[in-house]
């Protein structure tokens, strides 16, 4: 598999580390239901057979965290964005990655 890092260009899979679901957002620690929210955020995952938004880290490259949209059934990658941009864009994304 090859990932087109927005900073470095298309690079081989072995330069990257996978870090899971990019559709979950860290809850507010002061929320009255913080415990339940953090449990869901940390442990509960859907397992979609199709497009998935996920975090990758360009470990052997520029050290950027990336949000990669990848079809987990075919490994086809439809977008790669800097995670910082996605996070700053702000609006929490829904679980199905819309």
């Amino acid at each position: 598999m090859r990932i087109a890092c927005p900073h470095c260009g298309e690079r081989s899979l072995d330069e990257f580390l996978y870090s899971g679901d990019a559709t979950v957002r860290r809850p507010d620690f002061a929320s009255p239901t913080a415990m339940d929210e953090f449990i869901a955020y940390t442990f509960e995952r859907t397992n979609p057979a199709g497009p998935h938004r996920e975090l990758w880290y360009h470990a052997a490259g520029c050290h950027a965290w990336l949000v990669v949209t990848r079809n987990v059934a075919t490994h086809a990658i439809s977008s790669v964005e800097p995670a910082r941009d996605v996070a700053l864009a702000g609006k929490p994304e829904t679980k199905d990655g819309a």
Binding site: L17, S19, R26, L55, Y57, A59, H63, A64, W65, P82, A83, R84, A87, L88
Partner: peptide, 12 residues
């Protein structure tokens, strides 16, 4: 790696 994650993704 963890610090980069926090800086770029959790608290950009």
């Amino acid at each position: 790696q963890h610090m980069e994650y926090c800086a770029q993704w959790l608290w950009p």
